[in-house]
Amino acid sequence: MALFLSTPILGFIRSFPQPAKSMLILGLAIVLSTMSMAILAPYVAPYDPTSRVYIEFQPPTWSYLMGTNHVGMDVFSRIVWGSRVVLFVVAASAAISMAFGVPLGLISGYYGGLVDRVLSIIMDSIYAFPSLILAIAVAAVLGPSPLNAAISIAIVYVPTYYRMVRGETLKVKQMPFIEALIVLGCSDATVFKSILRNITQTILVVFSLSVADAILTEAALSFLGLSVTWPTPDWGLDLRSGQPHLLNGYWWISMCPGLMIIALSLGFALIGEALSDYFSITTKV
């Protein structure tokens, strides 16, 4: 089954020109291994992430791959379990954002008129506002929890999907085959499905790049204490709690989760860049 699936996908990857191919492969490697780590957490993590397993401040060794933190917990196990939170929040927020942004963008682009103008102004204003500050404001009111964090991030990224889908819809709307569908009397839903099929490429690119961004926003929220609470393992949280100890020389406590954040974001960004190269899409500022 896996073999059957892999061949067309492998063919697709092989058809990429360099340097996009290397970027895609590297990005996929990072993302897929993190996902596997999250799914297989109980089997991959050597220790219980929330209990003391050894002496504090142990530097990385073979039995404690990333050392122990200020309470004696195994940093590597915390990283492994922490990946679950990150991926959950990011996946949930992406799903919510798209669920609102894509249909709204379609409707706005297709029907135009007053609805379009009102929505555009609202979305543009949100888009122009610093995303992190907005996310913080929302999360602060909702209270700290991964789900609330996901909701706040989702709200912030709705305009991104909206603008992109709306722009593409406007372009695709002009094309003759859409007119043909309308003339033939197809329902709006059918036309929408047709439009969607054509803008899948752009959606994919924007998805990868905004997930890369959302990971950083999620890390920021948990860094500021607006997501999970101690002692739940979470990369942003650990980064923060490790900061005072960094300045005493115990760098692995905060730098390991910190570098994981960057690595995962980079993974998605590389995929997005590679896809954008391949589809020759220029993401406008």
Partner: peptide
């Protein structure tokens, strides 16, 4: 591309160190 994904606190802490 790299700066796009640099998480501010990580870079900041790294520079602090």
């Amino acid at each position: 591309i790299l700066t796009y994904t640099l998480f501010i606190p990580v870079l900041g802490m790294g520079l602090q160190y």
